[in-house]
């Protein structure tokens, strides 16, 4: 289900003008369409890589 970006903006970023929401909605929707299925498939035990995993693994 597509996110309601207008409602999201009203809740957390009310200073974003309505016409700007309309402009950025297609880009956010397109990103969501790729990203959401990926999130649904993340194995439960997977931890985040919040810092530089490549570097840390190489150092170890």
């Amino acid at each position: 289900m597509a996110r309601d970006w207008t409602a999201a903006a009203a809740a957390i970023a009310p200073d974003i003008p309505a016409d700007q929401i309309a402009r950025i909605t297609p880009s956010l929707d397109a990103l969501e369409a790729v990203f959401r299925p990926l999130v649904a498939a993340i194995p439960y035990e997977t931890e985040a890589a919040p810092v530089m995993l490549v570097a840390r693994e190489k150092d170890a």
């Binding site: 903006a9 700007q20 950025i24 880009s27 990926l38 999130v39 985040a48 890589a49 995993l53």
Partner: peptide, 27 residues
């Protein structure tokens, strides 16, 4: 760039954490 900053402000914290988890898998 204002359009990009505004997009980022509308993403959820859970989206960010999920992306960092996906990063590990994708690497």
């Amino acid at each position: 760039i204002l359009a990009l900053f505004d997009q980022g402000r509308l993403l959820a914290a859970t989206d960010y954490v999920s992306a960092q988890r996906l990063r590990r898998i994708q690497q």
